[in-house]
Amino acid sequence: MTAKHEDTLPNLVTIVGRGVPSNYEITVNGEIELVGSDPLEEATVVTDHAAEGAIETGVMRFRFSGEMANVHVVDWNGTPASESPNTPEVHIDYGVPARSDGK
């Protein structure tokens, strides 16, 4: 990730899978970009202001500008986060500099 992206996409959202197939949708009022993964390989759809996809295990990271507008995660049954312990964990951090490996 270039220094330009660090300046224009200073925030980070991390989605951590819990071993159960789950879906996520995140929307920001700025721009969003997948970090360190190939969107096609990860079956992730990223538009200017939103990202959606599936995760079972591992970590997905997105850098974004502006504020987080919406986070929606559901488990494989469609049960939302507040009602299912199996939905992914979501961490939102503002003003996080990019690491030297671009994450």
Rank of each mutant, 00 (worst) to 15 (best):
T2F: 00
T2M: 02
K4C: 00
K4N: 05
H5R: 11
H5K: 09
D7L: 13
D7Y: 03
T8G: 01
P10G: 02
P10C: 01
N11E: 12
L12P: 00
V13Y: 05
I15P: 11
I15H: 04
V16K: 15
G17S: 10
G17Y: 08
G17P: 01
G17H: 05
G17V: 09
G19I: 06
V20G: 00
V20W: 09
S22Y: 09
S22F: 11
Y24G: 02
Y24S: 07
E25P: 00
E25W: 10
E25H: 13
I26V: 15
T27F: 07
V28E: 05
G30C: 00
E31S: 13
E31A: 07
I32A: 05
I32V: 15
E33A: 12
L34E: 07
V35S: 14
V35C: 14
S37I: 00
D38I: 08
P39R: 09
P39Q: 12
L40P: 00
E42C: 07
T44N: 10
V45H: 02
V46P: 06
T47D: 13
D48P: 00
H49C: 03
G53Q: 10
A54G: 15
A54V: 09
A54Y: 10
E56F: 01
T57C: 08
M60A: 11
R61C: 10
F62E: 12
F62K: 04
F64I: 13
F64H: 14
S65G: 15
S65V: 05
E67A: 13
M68A: 12
A69E: 14
N70D: 15
N70T: 11
N70M: 09
V71I: 15
V71D: 05
V71P: 01
H72D: 12
H72Y: 13
V73M: 10
D75A: 07
W76Y: 09
W76V: 10
P80S: 06
P80K: 01
A81C: 00
A81V: 00
A81Y: 00
E83R: 06
E83Y: 05
S84N: 08
N86Y: 14
N86W: 14
V90W: 05
V90G: 02
H91S: 14
I92S: 13
G95M: 02
G95R: 02
G95D: 06
A98E: 02
S100E: 14
D101G: 06
D101I: 07
G102F: 01
G102W: 00
